[in-house]
Amino acid sequence: KVTYHVPNEEFARKLYKKAVDANLNVEIRVENGQFIIHIE
């Protein structure tokens, strides 16, 4: 399980798409202006 803290929405979207394309379980949320992405 990996967690990324991404300040940039564009990068967060790319990361999310890559994980989904790889059939990984992804959860994304915004906290204090940062995008928190959990990948399992």
Rank of each mutant, 00 (worst) to 15 (best):
H38V: 15
L24H: 02
I28R: 00
K14S: 08
A12N: 04
Y4W: 10
R13Y: 08
I28H: 00
E31V: 11
V30F: 14
F11E: 15
E40G: 09
K18F: 13
G33H: 03
V30P: 01
E9S: 03
D21E: 13
E40K: 08
H5A: 09
A19C: 14
L15H: 03
E9Q: 05
G33W: 14
N25Y: 12
N23G: 15
A12L: 13
F11I: 14
V20D: 02
L24T: 01
Q34M: 15
A22N: 08
A12Y: 06
A22L: 13
Y4P: 05
V6L: 08
N8M: 11
I39L: 03
R29C: 11
N23Q: 10
R29Q: 07
D21V: 10
K18C: 15
I37T: 00
P7D: 15
R29K: 06
I28L: 11
V2D: 08
E10S: 06
A22F: 14
Y4C: 15
A19W: 10
N8W: 13
K14M: 11
V30K: 07
H5S: 06
N23L: 14
I28K: 00
F11A: 14
Y4A: 08
V20M: 11
A12E: 03
F11R: 07
R13C: 15
L24K: 03
D21N: 06
V2A: 05
T3V: 12
H38W: 12
K14N: 08
N32M: 05
N32L: 05
A22W: 14
E9Y: 10
A19E: 03
T3Q: 09
P7N: 14
Y4D: 08
V20K: 10
V26T: 01
D21G: 06
H38E: 15
R29I: 13
V20N: 02
Q34H: 11
E9P: 04
H5R: 09
I28Y: 03
K18P: 02
A12K: 02
V6K: 05
N8G: 07
V30S: 05
E9N: 03
K1R: 11
I39P: 00
P7V: 14
K17C: 11
N32W: 12
Y16A: 12
F35Q: 01
I37R: 00
A22R: 05
D21Q: 12
L15T: 02
Y16Q: 08
K14T: 07
T3K: 09
E31T: 07
E31A: 08
E9D: 05
F35K: 00
K1A: 09
E40H: 09
K1S: 12
E31S: 07
K1L: 09
N23H: 14
V2P: 08
K18Y: 13
Y16I: 13
E10F: 04
V26R: 00
Y16P: 03
A19R: 02
F11S: 10
V20H: 06
P7F: 15
F11Q: 13
E27I: 10
Y16G: 05
K17E: 13
I37L: 06
I39E: 01
K18V: 09
Q34I: 15
G33M: 03
P7S: 14
V6G: 13
A12H: 03
L24D: 01
K17G: 04
N32A: 05
E10Q: 05
N25A: 09
V2R: 11
V20I: 12
I28Q: 00
L15Y: 03
N25M: 12
E10D: 11
